[in-house]
Computed example of a mutant assay.
Amino acid sequence: MRIFGAACLLLTATAANAGRPLTTEDAGFIDKGGVELENYYHRQTARGVESLSGLHVQPSVGIGFNTQIGIGVDFLRQYNADFEGRKSSGEYAIVGKTGLKALTDDEYGVAVAWSVDRTRAPGERFRYDNAALNSALTVPLEQWLLHANLGWARTRLGKQNSTTWALAAERIAAIGPVDLAAESYGNDHNAAWLGVAARWVVKEDKLFIDSSWAKQLGGERSRAFTLGLKLAY
């Protein structure tokens, strides 16, 4: 149970900072005055332990200086195998990203992302827990975007520092208006995850529907699924 809980918290904290629907961060950032609203449902399961599901809401705004900042809120529910004994918990995070080299259609981009959050276990109050710092490299290659991450994460309640990493490849307009992607990510304490994702560009630069699925290679064979909607103004 403890291992599964730590994996879920890591996934949730990472996703708050990521380029949806991937867990891997990209090097893009919101231009000054731009606003994005991301909403997604997520569900995480593992063999023999309680499942975790929730709704994540995250508005973000470009504040200039190649920087964006946002607030992510997670409303979480935990169930046993029979969907009984529901427990409520939550998390909210302040997240940000600064572009060190702007990503273009022809040139690679580099960015640094960060997050700090407070979590609430069932029946307890909110407490500061996770902090993360993550570097992101994105390389455009014709219709492909290649991403690489290397970072650091700290869980205060778990008293653990982690080195985090992620690799991803996106195929833009793989099937008409649908982008497809694959990724692998993890840290130096747990088994790696493998995932796939899709993004439907409903209205270019304005409205997106996305989904992802991932499986952890070892441990309790954890799985994660997300389904989301993104609006950009």
Rank of each mutant, 00 (worst) to 15 (best):
T163V: 15
I69C: 04
V178H: 09
E25V: 15
D31K: 10
K32F: 06
R171M: 02
Y185M: 08
I69R: 01
R2G: 07
K101E: 07
L207I: 12
A166P: 02
S222W: 10
S89H: 02
A168I: 09
L231M: 12
R2N: 13
F65C: 11
G96R: 08
D31C: 08
T24C: 07
K215H: 13
W200F: 12
F65N: 14
K87N: 04
Y108I: 04
F4Q: 05
C8G: 13
K203S: 03
A16N: 14
G176K: 02
A13N: 15
V196D: 07
N134R: 15
L137I: 08
A192M: 06
T23M: 10
S212G: 03
L227S: 03
D31A: 14
R199Q: 12
A121H: 13
G109P: 10
G123Q: 14
K206D: 09
D129C: 09
D129W: 09
G70H: 04
G33N: 14
S51L: 08
A16K: 09
P140F: 00
W165A: 03
V201R: 14
S88C: 06
A224R: 10
G72N: 01
I69P: 04
L146A: 05
D205N: 15
E25K: 12
A81S: 14
P21D: 01
L103K: 08
L141T: 02
L207H: 15
I172N: 03
A181D: 00
P122E: 02
A174R: 00
D188F: 02
A81P: 07
R120H: 00
L55W: 01
A81G: 13
G158Y: 00
K206P: 06
G195Q: 05
A6H: 11
A174L: 00
L227M: 09
D74R: 08
L207W: 13
V196I: 15
R127G: 14
V73C: 09
L150C: 10
A131I: 04
G96K: 06
D26E: 11
R156N: 13
L141I: 07
L150P: 02
T67E: 02
A198R: 05
V116D: 11
R47D: 15
G219Q: 10
F83E: 14
D117V: 02
H56E: 13
A214T: 04
L146Q: 00
L133H: 04
W213C: 01
N17P: 02
G48F: 07
G72C: 01
R156C: 05
L217I: 09
R156G: 06
Y79N: 12
T104F: 12
I69T: 06
N130S: 15
A111P: 00
